[in-house]
Simulated assay, not measured.
Amino acid sequence: MKAVIVPEVKAAWELHERPVPEPGPKEVLVRIHACAICGTDLWLAHGVLSFREFPLLMGHEGVGEVVAVGAGVTERKVGDRVGMPMMQKRCGACAFCREEHPNSFVTAGNCANPTLTGVNVDGAFAEYLATDVGGTVLLPDGLSYEDAAPTLCAGYTVWAGIRRADARPGARVAVVGLGGIGHFAVQFAKAVGYHVIVVTRTPDKHELARELGADDVVADGAALEEIGGADVILHTSSSHAAVIDAMTGLRPWGKVVLMGIGLDDLAIPALSLTTHSHQIIGSAHNGLEYLSEALDIVASGRVKPMTELFAVEQANDAYEKAAAGEVRFKAVVTFGLDS
């Protein structure tokens, strides 16, 4: 099979031939149709995060069709259309797993030996992937593989964060940042009836923000406060400083949901946090039920991922454009199959 390999830190992505894996007990073999590039992939490729030695076969936003099932598999059958999010399998034996938590990023971060697709085991930047059946989710009928792939992580993250915020109907929701995660956040928040405000200092994104559904677009927290503030701030930016600035416009009892990760320090304004009873919520993938909901919303047409498609032979071009911030907003590697 063709597989996209990262041979060493910051190296060009290469197309190699590798054997097709065999599905073991409780595993399925998936023929990959598409896999999106996530910011985490870039961090792994650049050595910012490290979970195993190079060379790497990454990819945790993969979608495709089940073509074989291993012994004991009853949950999936040949022909099922599935996605493979990062959290594939918990170890089941450590103290955390004995508490019987569902698959989520919290499990990924606390299980003693989790299996993470495309992170500490091979991922979906290949024509085939063998994965634990519990690390798959069914795709809705009518949802293209190209739209499903970026929903597996970026869309999942956003929708799980919105659900964690648990804002009242019609609440004012501010999205800080308008990138791979942010463009999902604007659309998901609008799809469920919130008043959506985009906070961005990039003038050429203002028109796009409104096209995606934003009711208002402002440059900073002072401007957010001036137009009435927000009940929820969705942190989708790579800059913590931008979010802290936006908190100037956070209403009393408001919530900040961290789903973007910056490399700068997160300096919380303690006095306003206390006097306004603000909440800071960390949120990533909060359970597969939220991924299923996100996929259903995208399948309904209320949310449309903005993607740029690259054939597998162009995987390095996709990587370089994504690393340079030149993709609006998700690079998706495809494997030459119909959707």
Rank of each mutant, 00 (worst) to 15 (best):
C38G: 08
E65F: 00
W43N: 11
F51H: 14
G70I: 04
E61L: 04
S50E: 15
V69G: 02
A93Q: 11
G83V: 08
K77I: 11
P85Q: 12
R76M: 09
T74N: 10
G64S: 03
F51W: 14
A36Q: 01
F96H: 14
F54P: 08
V78I: 15
L44S: 05
G70W: 01
M86P: 11
F54S: 09
A95G: 12
L42Q: 05
A71V: 08
C94G: 12
V78R: 09
C94Y: 11
L57M: 06
G62M: 04
T74C: 02
G70D: 04
M58W: 03
C91D: 14
A71G: 10
T40C: 06
V78N: 04
F96G: 05
H46E: 13
L49C: 04
M87E: 11
M58Y: 03
V78Y: 01
V66H: 01
R90A: 12
C91H: 15
K77T: 13
M86W: 14
V73N: 05
R81Y: 00
T40E: 06
E75K: 13
V67M: 05
A68N: 06
M84D: 03
H60N: 08
E53I: 02
G92A: 04
F54T: 02
M87W: 01
A95H: 12
A71E: 04
A95V: 14
L57P: 05
P85G: 14
L42W: 03
K77G: 12
G72R: 11
